Amino acid sequence: MTIDDRYIIFHKPYGVLSQFTQETPKHRTLKDYIDVPDVYPVGRLDWDSEGLLLLTNDGRLQHRLSHPRFGHERTYWVQVERIPDADAINKLQTGVEIQDYRTRPAKVRLLPANPPVCDRDPPIRFRKNVPTGWLELTLTEGKNRQVRRMTAAVGFPTLRLIRVSIAHLCLDGLALGEWRNLTAAEVKLMKMGSRE
């Protein structure tokens, strides 16, 4: 870690692109929230996903955390249409076919209660006669729109998707739209984990 290295975590709101340049006036970008030059997201969250986004100017760490070979865990809280049954959860745990790809095994559990999340703006579209459930899903890979494709493949479409952790980094009280610098201890753990 050099004196000029920056490591930031950001609680990305719904409707924000994981980039600093605006391609369409329809979406906000990271520039609307983070006024730190020359940092870039490690991986991405789609505009319609929320949660933890890591940004850095450390190219080596960025590469290692983004490369599928290193398999860092990413945990999501996923609100789905209807309540997933044991069969669906088992399929998600063992791997499902999405397009021409079979997903790696994942850690998946049905949360017994709604997790402590802030309201989304705009709120999800509720259907009066269709219940929703929350899954906690931990992946070691990050294909394009993978979580949404996985839940759809087992018959439970994703309504809301929030990344709550990357490896040992967690949102832990970081308000929606806020960012903070990582502590020296967090950076050290991140770098140690990236040498696997």
Rank of each mutant, 00 (worst) to 15 (best):
T151N: 01
T75A: 12
A167F: 09
V96T: 07
G193R: 15
R195F: 06
A86H: 14
Q62P: 01
I162E: 12
T151Q: 01
P68Y: 00
G155F: 01
N144D: 00
G193F: 12
R127L: 08
R60A: 12
M192I: 12
D4T: 15
H11G: 12
L55P: 09
L135T: 04
G193H: 15
G173M: 09
N90C: 10
N181D: 10
K31F: 06
I9G: 01
I3D: 06
W47S: 06
R109K: 13
G71D: 04
P131K: 08
L174D: 06
R102A: 03
Y101Q: 12
L45Y: 09
A175K: 08
T151K: 01
D119G: 11
R69Q: 13
P122R: 07
L159W: 01
G193S: 15
Q146Y: 01
N144R: 05
F10A: 02
H168P: 02
W47K: 09
A106Y: 11
L174N: 04
Q22K: 15
G155S: 00
V164T: 13
M190H: 02
Q79Y: 05
D87F: 02
H67T: 06
Y14K: 11
V78H: 05
N90T: 15
H11S: 15
H67N: 07
L139S: 08
A86E: 14
P13F: 04
T103M: 02
I9N: 02
P105Y: 05
A106E: 10
T29G: 05
D100E: 15
P84T: 13
R195P: 00
E136K: 14
P13C: 06
L139W: 00
W134Y: 09
G193Y: 15
L137E: 03
G133P: 06
I89V: 11
R64P: 01
N181M: 08
T75F: 02
A152W: 01
R102P: 02
W134E: 03
G193L: 15
E50H: 11
R120W: 04
R82N: 05
R195K: 14
M150Q: 11
K26H: 10
T151V: 05
A184P: 10
R104W: 08
D35A: 14
K107S: 08
D48R: 03
P84F: 07
L17V: 14
Y7A: 10
I89N: 05
L159N: 07
P115L: 05
R195Q: 13
A175Q: 07
P116Q: 14
P112N: 07
K191D: 01
T151E: 00
L111Y: 08
V36E: 14
R120Y: 03
W77Q: 04
T56P: 14
Q146G: 00
R104M: 10
A167N: 10
M1V: 11
R180M: 09
S18K: 08
Q93N: 13
V16P: 00
G51N: 13
G71I: 00
L53K: 15
V42N: 06
T29V: 05
R6A: 11
R125N: 15
R120N: 05
V80F: 00
Y14E: 11
L182S: 03
R145Q: 03
A86N: 14
N57M: 13
D48L: 11
A88K: 04
W47A: 07
T138N: 04
L161E: 05
P68M: 00
V39Y: 03
